[in-house]
Design a protein around this nucleic acid. Structure first.
Lengths: 108, 108
DNA sequence: CAGGCATATAGCTACTTGGTTATATAGGTG
DNA sequence: CACCTATATAACCAAGTAGCTATATGCCTG
């Protein structure tokens, strides 16, 4: 799972994933959108591939990259117990502010 | 946000967070649980502090570290659009398996 | 105030990483 | 086959990181 976190620690890679969330794309598109060199982009794609976050299919000379959501679902599962905690806090806060209008929630 | 992802990319740091999820603890506890040197542990704690994932309060000579959930909530928000995607897939799967015994219990 | 305990910082080293340019590989097309 | 397009890999460099040991800081206690 470490490789997933590490892969997501880079802003360029996160941006690439967001692009791929819309639809699968060839490398050229990602090169254009990141503004990095083509080899640089390929290097990032390798990291994402090694982490299992994307898969590539070959189409003539092009490699079409697509998201694989499973590692993200794993992160989501990791977050779950923490999420329960802050949801509990929010519930409490909500109860506390029950009858008020508060634009800026604060730590008690 | 990059600092949050980067902080979580290290297994020792994730383990420390899991410890702190149970309750706030002094550094000594974390040293013991990680098996790292004390300075090494302190270094990791600094990364977590800089990312805002933990806060420390001083209590005599001890520093008691506690989780701050807010950066994790941010990650959760980042995951949201992806989550929608895999939930949609799961919905589809579910429909497909409609008349069978459901192995994955769900939130009511 | 001396000494001990708990933690942080400094300073070092080996390794990893993000970026580059140059080159290799693979497929399409004249 | 010669060449072009698209992508990957190699080789290199600067900067960052994870670990260590040694040292500084801060607080308590006798």
């Amino acid at each position: 799972m470490t490789s997933t976190w590490a892969a997501l620690a880079d802003p360029h890679r996160r941006a690439m994933l967001e692009l791929l969330r819309e639809s699968p794309r060839p490398v050229g598109d990602l090169v254009a959108s990141t503004g990095l060199s083509q080899p640089g982009t390929s290097k990032h794609l390798r990291v994402l591939r090694d982490a299992g976050l994307v898969v590539a299919r070959t189409e003539a000379q092009r490699r079409i990259y697509a998201l694989d959501l499973r590692p993200l679902a794993e992160l989501d599962a990791w977050l779950e117990p923490y999420r329960r905690r802050w949801e509990r806090s929010l519930d409490a806060l909500e109860q506390h502010l029950d009858s008020q209008t508060s634009p800026t929630p604060k730590e008690p």
